[in-house]
Design a binder for these strands. Structure first.
Lengths: 355, 355
DNA sequence: AAAAGCACCTAAATCGATTTAGATATTTTT
DNA sequence: AAAAATATCTAAATCGATTTAGGTGCTTTT
């Protein structure tokens, strides 16, 4: 019942050759090293019979690589990152690698620990959606020789290869769409982790476009934690103060979901009472009533590019423009949640009718 | 620019002691082995200065364990499994372990490869949601000494510790709820991978309860792949044949989402034209219109139990009832999508009005 | 002063696979 | 038949950390 591992040596002894021969045979280098066909066959047969499995720790120790890459995101249960993870997993599998996935919960200390941990495990490289405030530490890792690619979130002039989307443009397109549709009292729901590039750029793009039209924006930061509760309270308060926006931009899918939930509870109608737009498209956005206007990201492209860049680093291949920032474009899917409805006083009064 | 690793030996040489001392100090065994305080401090200082990171491959090779566990599911981008992954990750982190997550796409061959691969990597144990037809192979791994816990999906009398939910009861409760509400023409949407215990038991429970009432069930297997297209076609066909069910049970969240999407496209109203119920609760089910009746699983409990059992195996601790099947209970969340509406001819005719 | 005790540390084996320099036996060349 | 060439394989170092059985020099005991 005990785990009895079969090693190279066991096979070598059993066949009556040296470990070297077994190793060479197992790695397909028999011909190259002039191992006789007879010996080769005997080794392979015995390895199969004994159910030999090469110990990858020993192999990794000797070879200096592990065919494992690390993926660090803020929360693997967020569907955006889950999709990223799945893409990376498939890409890794295509080159015989595995992925160790870790979540940081936007905690810088946790991120630091995880990077250290993955390095100690000798991962070949790391794909990281960082929560750090700046790139200083990461730059150290990178120039230390750690193959590293940043995705989703980036830093200005970090010098670390990064693959992100055009968040500014996403926010801008949303604002332009809302403005063009006739909305006039915009709000943006952002996160307390507002130093994060994605959040920051989305908000900046949104503000920029509205400011072009000379419109002031109501900006609200939702603290990490009970997002749903905070959003609910916010909308309540704004309503009581008679200070409701006529359109809202939620900077990510979590916030959007919280808004939908709150509006449902509070009886706020979308888009009649308030339009809703957000970043990150989810499957259900397209078929619920109302369908939700959202910016979608090219997840597959992000992963393909990031993975490719990482592989180049791992293989130590020089590559043109390494260290560059790659900015992919987004698509704004306009749906019912941001359809403009001519407001009437009677409608406004229906809000919170259930309360 | 090159990765210059700092080893135990480097520190030893630099301080002027043997590797043994450094190792003992680093592992907090200095006192136990009578290392002088002065030496201890000097070693620690030097380790910090040189930014020493113990090589976990070497450590794992020597110690025989890696503080890494494997998690194999069918698709990490499915929100149910993403949530599972997150829970397991946190549990593992609490004991200093990492998780390697892999997806099988319900492919038995891929599952086989992944298990082999994880074993070669010397993971300490595996948590598996298996796609196999029977437990034969898995039993071999298990009795071979591989710490293994099955979750979500199980096998009869496998002898392998398993943590699942009461799928039969879930299906049964749904059917009873529908029947009690007044529905009479039930359908169940199941998957082509119908040998899988979850799917099988859900359908069995559903059928059992309806049969108790003497009602026949329309059962449809949706082939893997283009689920959304297949569901859409199915509903179209059934409608044309004038053979629409008045209530539907989708055996998992993917199917339910496909149904919502199709109904939206086809103009089928829920629950007026057809009620919808499903397994796996998703956040958005509770606030969309109509809200969706769904069975929710105690994900956190599943993970806690599975992880605990795995740890017992890894630590080789005898534990009462190891190898047993643990069946957790589910909760049926009754919502608007299965509210009974007295049918009228005029309403029925509205279906497909847009086509 | 020899023996014993103690504090502090070292040498070396070990985990399992890879790789290289060279050993041995056989065959071919001259 | 001796030298050279070839075919086939082996020994041993290596990756880096852990662990255990001792070793060294000092102090204390008798």
């Amino acid at each position: 019942m005990k785990k009895q591992r079969v090693s190279l040596d066991d096979i070598a002894r059993s066949v009556g050759v040296s470990k070297a021969v077994v190793s060479l045979v197992m790695n397909g280098k028999a011909e190259q090293y002039g191992i006789s066909e007879r010996t080769r066959i005997r080794v392979l047969d015995r390895a199969r019979d004994l159910n030999y499995k090469p110990n990858q720790l020993a192999r990794g120790l000797r070879l200096g690589y592990t065919n494992t890459i690390g993926l660090i995101v803020s929360d693997i249960s967020n569907s955006f990152y889950a999709a990223i993870a799945r893409n990376i997993e498939d890409l890794a599998a295509s080159v015989g690698s595995n992925v160790i996935i870790c979540s940081t919960d936007e905690d810088i200390e946790k991120e630091r620990k995880l990077i250290k941990l993955l390095r100690n495990r000798q991962v070949d490289g790391i794909i990281l959606s960082s929560s750090q405030e700046n790139a200083e530490e990461l730059r150290n890792y990178y120039s230390d020789g750690l193959p590293l690619v940043l995705i989703d979130r980036c830093f200005e002039n970090s010098g670390i290869p990064s693959v992100v989307v055009d968040n500014f443009n996403g926010g801008k397109q949303i604002a332009e769409h809302l403005s063009k549709s006739g909305f006039q009292k915009p709000m943006v729901l952002t996160l307390s982790t507002s130093h994060i590039s994605t959040v920051k750029h989305r908000v900046e793009g949104y503000k920029y476009a509205w400011q072009q039209k000379g419109v002031k924006i109501d900006t609200v930061e939702i603290p990490f934690g009970d997002i749903s509760g905070a959003v609910s309270e916010l909308l309540m308060t704004r309503f009581k103060q008679n200070f409701m926006p006529d359109c809202l931009f939620a900077v990510n899918n979590n916030l959007a979901t919280a808004v939908l939930q709150s509006c449902n509870n509070l009886g706020i109608r979308i888009p009649e009472d308030m339009a809703l737009t957000c970043f990150d498209d989810l499957p259900y956005f397209s078929f619920i009533k109302p369908s939700v206007t959202a910016v979608s990201q090219p997840i597959s492209d992000i992963c393909t590019q990031a993975f490719e860049i990482l592989m180049h680093q791992i293989k130590q291949e020089e590559i043109e423009g390494l260290g560059k920032l790659s900015v992919l474009s987004i698509v704004l899917n306009i749906r019912d949640s941001s359809r403009f409805v001519i407001p009437s006083d009677s409608e406004e009064s229906k809000i919170l009718k259930d309360k």
